[in-house]
Computed example of a mutant assay.
Amino acid sequence: MPPDATALLQAAGVDAGYGTMQVLWSVDLDVRAGETVLLLGANGAGKTTFLKSLVGLIETRHGSIQLGGDDITRMRSSDRMRRGMTYMSELAVFPDLSVEENIRIGAQALGHRDADVDDLYALFPVLRDKRKDPASSLSGGQRKMLGMAKALAADPKLLVLDEPSAGLSPLFVKEVIRILKGLQSRGIALLVAEQNIGFLEVATRVFVLEGGRIRFSGTVAEMTDNEALRRAYFGLK
């Protein structure tokens, strides 16, 4: 994939894996400023491996990753984060710390002196009344909210989310989608790895990952017009 001057994030020809096991083969993906990209795939497709390679938690064996036009392929994870890319995984919070301590640490760890906690409580009102409670006391859905608030505390340009719907009730999934729509209005770029097609509601573009390879990239409309993908993801004949 040639460099795209309009891309905030661009991954080109990324290979990655664990030990002798290769998981990703020549993955190309880009995210433009302010847009929401959905990385769609079933369990085991390689979504988490790809996100970990983007944020520097595992090595990129081949290919390149650029953020804001700069090559970050061999950059330390902490330096990538300080350049404006934050990552929310399943293990997103410190359970023994309070809600507010988690949020403030999210800002400080990425080089910001403090977080605008009032603004984040406005975005995540469920956390306001629990701000002094330990994160361990939160429900699974509330922990997801705290993980997102913690990732947003450093005012990122790009928020990378790994399976934000995992383990959540349909009601909380709708709440996550509502929050993502709010982030879109703030101009934050989002890369969301999911298997839940409900997140197509917030997507600008879609990449389908299957067997460690990108099988489709395009708009939501183009995906729904693709007969094979309609069958695989929408259960349509």
Results as ranks from 00 to 15, higher is better:
D96F: 07
S98C: 06
D28L: 10
G46Y: 03
D119Y: 09
T48Q: 07
M21I: 13
K237S: 13
K150S: 07
S137Y: 08
P156F: 09
M145P: 02
F234L: 15
T60W: 03
Q22M: 11
Q66S: 14
S137R: 12
Y87R: 03
H112I: 05
L168Y: 04
N226I: 04
G147Q: 01
F216E: 13
S77G: 12
Q184G: 14
V27E: 11
V202P: 03
M148I: 11
M75S: 13
N226Y: 04
D79S: 14
Q195H: 15
M148E: 00
L67E: 04
L8T: 09
G211C: 12
T6F: 09
E101S: 09
R231I: 08
L200R: 07
S165P: 08
R205S: 13
E101H: 05
M223R: 09
V14N: 01
M145R: 01
E35P: 06
S137C: 06
A203K: 09
L120M: 11
D114S: 15
L171R: 08
L9D: 06
M145K: 02
R32K: 15
D225K: 13
A109M: 14
G235K: 09
G84D: 09
L152H: 03
G44I: 07
A135K: 03
G56W: 05
N226R: 10
Y121H: 14
M88I: 02
I197T: 15
T20E: 14
S78A: 14
R80G: 04
L91K: 13
R76A: 15
G13E: 13
R128Y: 12
L229A: 07
M21N: 11
R76W: 06
R205K: 14
F124S: 02
H112T: 08
M75L: 15
D116P: 09
A154C: 15
H62Q: 15
A5D: 12
L171N: 09
T86I: 06
G46K: 01
